[in-house]
Design a protein around this nucleic acid. Sequence first.
DNA 1: CGTACTAGTCTTTTT
DNA 2: GACTAGTACG
Length: 820
Amino acid sequence: MSIYDTLNEQQKKGVFTTKGPVLILAGAGSGKTRVLTHRIAYLIESMGVNPWNILAITFTNKAAGEMRERVDKLVGYGSESIWVATFHSTCVRILRRYIDKIGYGNSFTIYDADDSKSVMKDVCKKLDIDTKMLKERTILSAISSAKDNLITPAEYDRTAAGDYTKRKISAAYTEYQSLLNKNNALDFDDIIVKTVELFKSCPDVLENYQNRFQYIMVDEYQDTNMAQFELIRLLAAKNKNLCVVGDDDQSIYKFRGANIRNILDFEIVYPEAAVIKLEQNYRSTQNILDAANAVIKNNAARKDKALWTDEGAGNRIHFRSFDEAHEEADYIAGDIRRKKRELVSDYRECAVLYRTNAQSRLLEESFIGLNIPYNVVGGVNFYARKEIKDILAYLKTIDNGKDDLAVKRIINVPRRGIGAASIDRVQAYADSNGISFFEALSQIDSIPSLAGSKSGQKLKDFNTMIRGFRTRLEFCPLEELITDVIETTSYVKALEESDDEDAKDRIENIDELITKLVSFEQEKEEQGEKATLSEFLEEVALVADIDGVGSDDNKVLLMTLHSAKGLEFSQVYLAGLEEGIFPSYMTISSGDLSELEEERRLAYVGITRAKDDLTITYAKKRMIRGETQYNAVSRFVREIPESLLDNSLPSNNVREDSYDDASYERGLFKTKPFNAGDANNWSAAENYLNSYSNRNAKREKLSDTVFDNPSQESVSSLGRKKDISEILVSRPKAVARKKETPSANKPYIAKSLEGITKGMPTAAAPEYQTGDRVRHIKFGDGTVLNIEKDTRDYKITVDFDEYGNKIMYAAFAKLKKLPN
DNA sequence: CGTACTAGTCTTTTT
DNA sequence: GACTAGTACG
């Protein structure tokens, strides 16, 4: 009996086809990790391949760790020399050795999104870019997508001619790169981009790795972007033993540059590729699979396939609807408690999945209320916390003196009397002498405005302190360094003395960081290596939220649908299945059908996480960003045949609650909406009001008083002046009454089913024709290629200048005709 | 130079 | 509702 006997025919094919390019299309739960691990085992044991020559690439450290562990169990020896790693850590390892060949120092720093944003802020200031018009975020995401597609600043600039915004972005891109280079730093995208650049400019380095990686496997191939594809293509060019595994139906990272064409076109790039389809599912019951199949088949752009299982039909999908979001959360928590009590399942077998991180809050409250242990994956990353970033900035400063960002972050943290003025003076000196900020600190006496001054002395002291740490780094273990940093800077002491109410948490976080550093150091020691500071900082920079999640703790897991990819649970709850939440409002209003398809794939991912039971919940009413929204049941739920659900769907009537002119005209309100600045409807008005009061817990009090007794007095007695009274004067009483009795006697408008799921029932013919130039709020200008009348609406194909071809529904896309 | 308070923004998803 | 950048003041 061999280890391969338990595999099905298709899986065996995947394992035994070792030569040349192989594409494994693996449906959810079809055992792709099993195929990959057995394939590695087969290569080593039967094909005599040296483990050293195998490269397996995954997207998360967690996946990499699991793969190594499973190979270890199968092979028993040699698995430690297989290179199993994520794209990013693979590239960092390569760059640490060779990046000096392309103009960086080998001890480069890795910038996270926060750091990138700080750099971009400087860039905007320097280039005089008005960040009100063009946000840092926008620029950064344009740069990021350029990098995903391996477009250099110079190339970007060539496409920018004639477009004002693009020219600005182009200038920012160039400046941003030069700043990163000056700081000897790479952002996330650079890690891949620079490796490709290295391979292209140093054929000998590439060849070195081509010879090493004779067999390459890539997991989650559907989520690779252009740059990652190119990286793999280069590495595999010599031996061509490239096996990619993926599922086009689970491609959910397009927003991050993932190119679904990489998997759809694999056979075009490698015509000799063997293609293997895994469709038998070993995870879920047939009912769950039927639901998943029913949803995903509404996507047009996909390879046709359908999951099936040998197992029985199982329970029907549980569907529950609620009036309020907190009732939904209470139900989920209560249901999990029930399952635990009735011994149906333990906490660790349950997961709650949602579309946006913000949805976790209500769930957490309910879990705390019922005393159910839980873990939230994601949200605020541990390493993104202020105190952690501060300590890390010290370590970065010690490790790489060129990282100006890190130095400036901590030069006055904790407070040591160094202000903005001094910092600017040092920076000016550094700039005019072409040296780094930290270097300039060593030359304080040469800076006229600082030499001999009080401020100058403080700067010198800081410099001396850092140098002291550097000396310590040479002779002491990392653990001593970090405790020395915390001691010498009095960081924790300052926290203890501060009136920061989170001080205790922050100190605990710092202790946690020390623990992580110590265990990192020990691990290295066990492997017979000495841990370096750079390695630690790099590991820390590349951790994903999901990496730390283990099954050791008996806790319910709460996470976004994105984080859940690749995981499975006996009991899965999909919460917030509402139009506008999932699919998100952004997706619906963009009118782009391909974005809607990506959301649908996300729904498919969610459904297929469940092994035994799937519970879908819906809340009619929900607070989003302090605004109450009323949403219809998600179209994805309606795509599931009702026979698979244990409850019928609620009628699709949605309460129309906006206090706007349109509602007024329909006779919903007796008074016309007021206008105070932007506040022209109920939600906006409430928001407007809140912005004055939400801080000091006066909010509730203020609002209530205001609504009960809308007089000038009640406002001024709370210490508020001018604008509020303006609102009050113009605020109609109807609004105030609304607030008191939110659900009673409110008129409902029945929006027809067509209205929700099928676009507008009576769509007017668009004002533009084929060939016309049109403008889209998100995709910019483009040319209409085709207009097609559909049963529901007009399907418009537009060739956008910047985004290429998009097919969209006229009713949602709201295209504006431009003069020809 | 440091603090306290205000106003605006944000959120869709993340290696 | 949370976070943060900006600002006025001590």
